[in-house]
Design a protein around this nucleic acid. Sequence first.
DNA 1: TTGTAAGCGTTATCAT
DNA 2: ATGATAACGCTTACAA
Lengths: 342, 342
Amino acid sequence: MGAARRSSGATMHDVAQLAGVSVKTVSNVINGYPHIRPATKERVEDAIGVLGYRVNITARSLRRGRTGMIGLALPELGLPYFAELAETIIRVAEETGTLVLIEQTNASRDREIEALGSRVRHLTDGLIFSPLALGQEDVGLFDVDFPMVLLGERVFGGPTDHVTMDNVAAARAATEHLLARGRRRIAVIGAHPGERVGTAALRVQGYREAMAAAGLPVDERLVAEAGAWHRSTGDAAMTRLLDDGVEIDAVFGLNDAVALGAMHALRLHGRSIPDDVAVIGFDDIEEAAYSAPTLSSVAPGAEQIARTAVEYLLQRIEGTAPDQARQVVTDFSIVTRQSTGG
Amino acid sequence: MGAARRSSGATMHDVAQLAGVSVKTVSNVINGYPHIRPATKERVEDAIGVLGYRVNITARSLRRGRTGMIGLALPELGLPYFAELAETIIRVAEETGTLVLIEQTNASRDREIEALGSRVRHLTDGLIFSPLALGQEDVGLFDVDFPMVLLGERVFGGPTDHVTMDNVAAARAATEHLLARGRRRIAVIGAHPGERVGTAALRVQGYREAMAAAGLPVDERLVAEAGAWHRSTGDAAMTRLLDDGVEIDAVFGLNDAVALGAMHALRLHGRSIPDDVAVIGFDDIEEAAYSAPTLSSVAPGAEQIARTAVEYLLQRIEGTAPDQARQVVTDFSIVTRQSTGG
DNA sequence: TTGTAAGCGTTATCAT
DNA sequence: ATGATAACGCTTACAA
């Protein structure tokens, strides 16, 4: 039962009693209140040491109306990009003593909606949310009354702070990278055809812009769908393209996982990378530096994204943020590796 | 401020007032107390709906002495094995309405000790702990007075439940897998020389046993150190071996990350896999199925590990576990892929 | 079947 | 500089 779970049953009262002061004084010491006689402070600290006292965060949260935790809702930790993002966010949040509660939505619409209204919201001071199923048409859902920072490109012009990157420009740069290497038949893997907004749409748009700027028409058979951006779906989409006999000399994977899956399919079909087909991905996950061949990619500056998201959220929570929603566009760069002849 | 963080300021009192009942009755309805008049129940539920009331978990936790959260202390989410483990544990825990708070220790001794006594312990009902720095000599530290389940092979015979696998047998099987394919000069990447216990020591032991059983002496130059098991350290260790001119026809990476790093180094040195050098890893992370060549590996049954750990911990928390510490040895299997000619 | 009231461990208000 | 005491919102004896 409850008895088993405390590192020690000591409460502030016990400390106060042992130190011969009131609980208020103990509280003052713990919270760094400045006007305390050094002798008193020392007595309290000794008592804390003797009893092995630790503040009960639950009680503090109830009283303060703040828990010191923030939520992080993302699709799933099995996707390397999100695992690396979570790692960074947890690390950065910790610098301010903030704990992170991860909620996996599996990119399901229902679960993303639930994340916005879950009982967990009562347990966290705010939310960093990376939606993958909800989109512009759901913009109303994002008008919540708790601090939130949105990640990604599913929703624009909403009422919350938003950290994103210029996906169109980044995708244009990735495509230009392939064009500059003489590639003309560039397939895109990971498109979401029905979709008007969202990461996929923006990256495909960047691709189209680069092709147009190069005076190349886009063969629509080159734009391959892949719903969830996993290695397996990239593999499947690439396989379809190859089986259909579509002529290809380059692949732009809309993230690294689909690019890696596509490389897998290319190998199975005996295409050499980059000689027959050059490949570039997006996200620059660690795996990209160790695949065979190593994978060129768009590096989104994950640290900057994480740091900005946490900082903005904490400002909202503390009420030090401006009233109107902020939008941050983070930097990106192209990392050239073997898969594009780097 | 606090005002901003509630989905609605409604408390149980508000609900009780609107429904014309006492807070006790509202509480009864929420907690599924059976003896409530249907009409009353309905009135309460209506009021809850009208006010958009949600129970305040913090208040409930304080009163109940339980938070409904468990901690998960692991090295870092950037390591695919731990990311996949965390994903599974979060998913499994959710089935019982349990939330998971992840703490990253970076495999640092100080941070692992801190995880055992952190203020967070007051916020969680128990801990699933996967230590990497603490070991047998620290067994005393694991004698904590909160529910805990230990993962991995750093500590045996401790006072807590322990979920592990037979690393010696698994490593023996991996080595035999290579021996069966005619390999004789089998390098091990990822040894921790000074260490007597721990995953590395056990897996190296399994390797030695298999070599001995095959009547082969172990050339100590084949046992290569790699501190943290990352792609980068596997790469470095393999590079060292190759530069030293050690003759090698197979590699046993003590986890998949070092195996993948080693493959990277082998490619740079022009060795073909598996023709010149066969490679097997350990963990069977998703990446192993998509690398080039695909990587044979020891699959530890992550789902079983996660499920057992959560189940045991919840039993401890609920007091339905037997007094004495339990030890579970989970199953493993060898997955044969291209890197060993599969 | 439902209500009253105490208390979980803190912090905050107001005295002193 | 420190102390008494009332909240925070909920659960739970105990009453009715």
